[in-house]
Write a protein that binds this DNA or RNA. Structure first.
Lengths: 151, 151
DNA sequence: CACGTAACTTAGCCTAGGCTAAATTTCAGA
DNA sequence: TCTGAAATTTAGCCTAGGCTAAGTTACGTG
């Protein structure tokens, strides 16, 4: 039951602004997380990470990959030499591990609430970058609780 | 078959690329949705939507708001005259209504799985733009089921 | 071993979305 | 009604992330 028509939608302005700022921050780190996660997967499963494969899997041109890799190098996440394969720095490996764990948690959660595996993967790709630690904890609790029930 | 540890993380390349493409698409529309939703809220609760309030609540400069509003006008979502308040076109109102309903569904869902109201609002701001129709339907089912249990 | 093709980089362009500083316009109060 | 402060716009700049086309490099194969 609400009061009258349309009360209480707008939070205090500064709080509101903080939400959007966090949002923009998450958007900024999303690309880096997607790239290092993909590079880690390629290294693990294919033994090497080549720009051409990143381009194919990201659905983006090779030139775009080159530019993005340049930023990731600048930010200390990726190591490479001109015309050679890609590797992760320690920081990059750590980011990839966190991203992967988070990705899998989100996928498992989405499947638990009734999504099919493919849709869960698709949605996780977007949702994983915008779930706070508290939300992820809630997902984990939900999964744990559900396992208890299943016995 | 290839090595054994770490199988089955990478989907087919074209499918993978499609996920990221959807992702980029969602990112593109997120700003528009946030702006029209905020404009609708301001119109409803304050009686008018001024750029200065959008700037304050988005945590962004007025110049940025002016530029963004220009794009929303170009895209047929917002109507305004120079130096005057902002209004939504029919298309803008429709987008705002959808965005608001989706936002509230996500908030209710997050609260249902154990988040406090403030965190739910924060997370919803990011998650609402990246949840597919199927995911939203799953959220709704979850809430409906939960109400049944509560009786 | 050289050579052609595939992979990668470079150059140049674009849009969205940020910023500050400097106009310009509106509007309320003296 | 005039005027100054607040709101808005404009100008100019920046970064991320897209693109294509053209140039370079690496490498497998004949």
């Amino acid at each position: 039951m609400r009061s009258r028509a349309a009360e209480r939608t707008l939070p205090p302005a500064d709080e509101h602004a903080a939400r959007f700022a966090r949002q923009r921050e998450a958007d900024r780190s999303a690309t880096a997380e997607d790239y290092v996660e993909l590079i880690a997967d390629l290294l693990r499963e294919e033994g090497e990470a080549r720009a051409v494969d990143l381009a194919r899997r990201m659905g983006v041109s090779q030139a775009t990959v080159t530019a993005t890799i340049g930023r990731l190098q600048r930010d200390g996440l990726v190591e490479t030499k001109p015309y050679r394969g890609l590797f992760l720095t320690a920081a990059g490996q750590e980011m990839a591990a966190i991203a992967k764990a988070r990705h899998e948690l989100v996928v498992r959660f989405l499947i638990a609430i009734g999504l099919d595996a493919e849709t869960a993967e698709e949605d996780a790709e977007g949702l994983e970058h915008h779930a706070s630690e508290k939300a992820l904890a809630a997902f984990a609790r939900f999964l744990a609780m559900r396992e208890d029930d299943a016995g």
